[in-house]
Design a binder for these strands. Structure first.
Length: 362
DNA sequence: AAATACCACAACCGCGGGTCA
DNA sequence: CTGACCCGCGGTTGTGGTATT
């Protein structure tokens, strides 16, 4: 049985909001607040709208201090950096851009920024991805690898490549004039974010793979007890098909049999089909992006007062000891949450590994 | 001038998590 | 513990405007 609808679909108006509706909603919320119940709100004020629609209209349009359009170069850079870092976590990205809504940023990315950043390399990257594809017994090109990559992953990978291209001919890393121009406060923000994510075991970014590391819950290269419940059948299935996680490459692990493999030593493509090691290349993504973002400075070690203002970071610092580690993969739709905000992403509860899928997508 | 394609953005939808009775 | 309810999220669709043919 499906989920019950949140409202009576037959009796709610859909489509664009009229100025009268806007005025009603705005006036009421400004006077009484939302009453913490969006579903009941439209009835109270006589709007034939779904509560969710009211909420969206308020948050994305009517709420005070909302900025529309006119994204600055600095905002572009932040969006780009965070997208590469954490993917399509629009609410997280929006939290770093005051006055911007997740919907606005999402639309802006999908319609403009993505094309701006990726457009020029579309053709060459398609060739490159094609060359990465496997060939079957008949020598027919199999693009399943690239097809298996989520669009988000592809975009992020392409962005990474774009950065690499920038690096090569003109010593991008060594030429500050080519670095994206960020306001010092914005650079500080991003570095603080990255620092916290990297330093904290509950980081979004986990460069070191668990298997080679002694640590809580790990025994050599074996999937730790209670950590990953991948079945042999599933593992074999994975072994026989896709050997790197299609949608998560920030920190990548490979599964073979019951073992988690460090991407730096495991060569799944070479193992199976004698192709270049896509996995290693892809898994290098994150550290190179780190370099890109951090080489502009020395190693960034924020002091306590440097992260003031980021409550989420303070929370991390306060509970570092509690956590083991977790994946930075947020692409998966798993049994765990797919809802993140600027704090929840950074919070320290680690129970991210509850099924094989998540483990596989380390 | 009309038809078509493309673009930008607002709005909707369905899902999963959190809360609470 | 369970189920109902609500919230918030990311993905998708709809729509109006603009550019191109």
């Amino acid at each position: 049985m499906g989920r019950a609808p949140c409202c009576d679909k037959a009796n709610v108006k859909k489509g664009p909001w009229s100025s009268e509706e806007d005025a009603k909603l705005k006036a009421y919320i400004e006077q009484y607040g939302t009453g913490s119940n969006w579903i009941a709100l439209p009835q109270k004020i006589g709007l034939k709208r779904c509560g969710k629609s009211c909420r969206l209209r308020w948050l994305n349009y009517l709420r005070p201090n909302i900025k529309h359009g006119g994204f600055s170069e600095e905002e572009d850079n932040i969006i780009c950096s965070l997208y590469i870092s954490i993917g399509s976590r629009w609410s997280v990205i929006a939290a770093q851009l005051p006055g911007r809504t997740d919907n606005d940023i999402k639309n802006y990315w999908n319609t403009r920024l993505k094309k701006k950043l990726l457009g020029r390399r579309k053709e060459s990257n398609m060739n490159r991805f094609s060359s990465m594809g496997a060939k079957d017994a008949n020598g027919i090109e199999d693009n399943s690898y690239s097809q298996a990559l989520s669009s988000s992953a592809l975009e992020r990978l392409q962005l990474h490549m774009q950065l690499q291209t920038l690096q090569k001919p003109s010593s991008f890393y060594n030429n500050p004039a080519l670095w994206p121009k960020l306001h010092p406060q914005q650079e500080k923000m991003i570095r603080s974010l990255q620092y916290s994510l990297n330093e904290n075991p509950s980081s979004l970014w986990q460069h070191d793979f668990p298997s080679p590391q002694p640590g809580p819950g790990f025994t050599g290269a074996t999937v730790p007890e209670g950590f990953a419940k991948i079945s042999n059948t599933k593992a074999n299935e994975l072994d026989n098909s896709l050997h790197f996680t299609p949608s998560s490459y920030n920190s990548m692990a490979f599964v073979t049999g019951n073992n988690l493999m460090d991407s730096s030593t495991y060569d799944p493509k070479a193992d199976v089909i004698g192709q270049p090691n896509v996995g290693v290349e892809v898994s290098a993504f994150q550290s190179e992006l780190d370099d890109f973002l951090n080489n502009k400075t020395m190693v960034f070690v924020p002091q306590e007062d440097q992260v003031v203002g980021f409550d989420c970071l303070r929370e991390i610092n306060s509970s570092k000891d509690d956590v083991i580690w977790w994946s930075n993969d947020f692409d998966t739709k798993s049994s765990t949450s797919n809802s993140w905000d600027s704090t929840s992403v950074l919070q320290t509860e680690p129970p991210m590994f509850q099924d094989y899928e998540l483990c596989y997508k380390l």
